[in-house]
Design a protein around this nucleic acid. Structure first.
Lengths: 174, 174, 174, 174
DNA sequence: TTTT
DNA sequence: TTTT
């Protein structure tokens, strides 16, 4: 549709080590279960209560799958940004069923590790290029050298790098 | 859980006139179906393709239900901000089923009308207090008089209104 | 820094026809002024009050600049998603000054037109490829064919298009 | 304005212990400096580069100020959600100056601690009621008992608590 | 300087 | 079931 937005932002913890499958043509797909929760004090009883929500996240982005494969373990705290998608499928009795998932695919998908350890499941982390929690948009981080603007004053220049290479870890994609 | 965020942001069109039910104790609950869609040019065929996603939105916030009741019609374009919630229920054969909805309830829920007409279903709009599309956080809009900060210069004062009234359409909630 | 997010989401109206400059090497940079505003009823006087906030948006993304050049006019309602950046410059007396802008550059930058007409400044719109308000992430819209996941049921396939082409209007970027 | 949104989402680290001032009528205002940063590999040199952005955050929300006063120290990692505001002031020579800040005030403002320790400046944490990182929307967390919707099946009831109490730590604000 |  |  014209002028529509479909965006989900979660910060939560991974419930189990991620599963990574591959399509027939070799591209990876990662599945994550992420828990968010909120707590509040019950007005009547005065007790603190908590409710946990579980989310299914499906990652089609190849660079994000690589990050997940290497660094994301059970217990890791993640920031993720994706889109809602409801998928129709048939159960064993042939009835239509629907599952809603958060899809990370292409643009505007982000996955960022928020803890420096991948705590919870044990292991994780270690790669020398991945020094702690880090942000992984597709193709590496958003470029940042920036540039100027300004009504009259200032000049905007955005110097570093060529604008049209697209390898992951590249500097300025466009 | 400590430190979690569960947020959905949608801009889309309402698929049908909203349904408003009431709980036993009289509070309203509105249900909306919202469509978002995206289009892209297929790389092989060169054809433009489009995919629509349908979202179920459940509104527990009383002020937002009032806005919906009065102004939201089939076809209206909305900005909504809520949280994901998956609800378990039993189908007629007693099997567990799950439905994922976007819940607008309390804080950090927003509904904003993005077209000035409520076009689509016909009528709508017209109230003198609601001049066109408008933003409705719970209890009216976020206060805005603001105030200053500043490292050294400036003084921050936030003058208008008492901070502790809570009627809808109030000025400064806290 | 590890694990950081810097995101701005605005829906507002463009205050003047956009300015588009070009860098020495020919890349476009668009400047927009966008107004957001909120209204509330003053608690004391009972009057409705309104406060408008003006935002400076700088667009480095080439595809987004093209969209702006062709379709965005004074008065247009836009959804934009970018990042905050504070730029240092010197005024005519040599004093340091700082300007904070919303930068749209590379990933996670989005600009979507929310009105079907570019109303306000007059003209606009018309291109056959741009049928009304539309979303433009860099390189065309986010792909959407999606795919499955599911713990046991369903199979995930994401069929259309080659995953590694990167022209604007392409189908599936990664 | 009708139909506008002004939202900033940051995840970053606090650069110094927060300053808390008070207005003449006793309400607190907290100032935070938050750093976000992104890194990328320079396309020419192949070096990893990093750019840090500093943000000024001004908190008018009283419950959020309390949280900041008690738990937020230099080095803490925070999620914050607020609105952009540009404030005009005069420097010592009488020239107009502008500062853009992220304001947390009333609805749709959130501050969540993302590390369980307030690492960096030392101390922090300890209160028995604040067991680790936690989310603080105004007046306690968003209620979560939720309820149902559903086209035909299921019944939605949202039972707990009265909808109109407004103390912090309350359960269901509206 | 926008919009309602 | 919406919208362009």
């Amino acid at each position: 549709m014209a002028g529509s937005v479909n965006k989900v932002i979660l910060i939560g913890n991974v419930g189990a080590d991620p599963e990574i499958r591959r399509t027939q043509d070799g591209r990876p797909i990662a599945n994550l279960r992420i828990a968010t929760s909120e707590s509040w004090k019950d007005r009547n009883s005065g007790e603190r209560r908590e409710k946990t929500e579980w989310h299914t996240v499906v990652v089609f982005s190849e660079p994000l799958c690589k990050v997940i494969e290497q660094y994301v373990k059970k217990g890791a705290k993640l920031y993720i940004e994706g889109a809602l998608q409801t998928r129709k499928w048939q159960d064993q009795t042939g009835n239509d069923r629907y599952s809603t998932e958060i899809v990370l695919q292409g643009f505007n998908s982000t996955l960022t590790m928020l803890d420096g350890r991948g705590e919870g499941g044990g292991a994780s982390r270690g790669g020398s290029d991945f020094g702690g929690a880090q942000s992984y948009d597709d193709y590496g981080s958003r470029p940042s050298s920036g540039g100027g603007s300004g009504s009259g004053a200032s000049g905007g220049n955005r110097s570093s790098g060529s604008p049209l290479s697209r390898d992951m870890d590249d500097d300025i994609p466009f």
